[in-house]
């Protein structure tokens, strides 16, 4: 595993270059691969870029889309900002909780889903809105959310 990580990170460093500007794209690729930033990867990145591990962690922890604790394979982010709030985003959260049994901030036991609140997704005119991984879903209703989640359960 460790040597695998090292190889993976080294390939990323080859791809983006061994300089500070490569840090974010590298962290983003680790997210795509492991769904979160494990300590081992962050340490290896620090070595590759010749910066301190604290610097890597400090940068990673700044961004809400870079997670330093384990996440599910599919991360659901429901918009909590005012217009989606007015359009009953809580009904969407309730529907998700009912179907997969987790509240915002939690991950399912099988590691399939994580649920989070997020800030304005830029879909106010089509709220309530959510993001699953990179895919936006808008004009949600509790029924629609269930159909969407079922399709992800099969993935």
């Amino acid at each position: 595993m460790i040597s695998n990580n090292e190889e993976f990170i080294s390939q990323l460093a080859d791809k983006y270059g061994r300089n500070r500007e490569s840090l974010l794209p590298m962290l983003q690729e680790v997210m795509d691969q492991f769904y979160y930033l494990n300590e081992d990867c962050m340490i290896t990145i620090a070595k590759e870029l010749d910066i301190s591990t604290a610097d890597v962690y400090g940068t990673a922890s700044f961004y809400s889309f870079l997670d330093t604790n384990e996440q599910g394979k599919h991360v659901i982010r429901v918009c909590q900002t005012i217009i989606c709030d007015m359009k009953r985003k809580e009904d969407i959260i309730d529907a998700i909780t009912e179907l997969i049994g987790i509240k915002p901030g939690e991950t399912t036991h099988d590691g399939k889903f994580s649920l989070h609140y997020t800030n304005c997704l830029g879909a106010c005119h089509k709220g309530p809105a959510m993001l699953i991984n990179d895919e936006p879903y808008t004009e949600l209703t509790p029924e629609k959310v269930k159909d969407i989640l079922v399709s992800y359960m099969k993935k």
Partner: peptide
């Protein structure tokens, strides 16, 4: 673009 209520970009 992240300002709440902005989606023109």
């Amino acid at each position: 673009e992240g300002e709440p209520g902005t989606f023109k970009d």
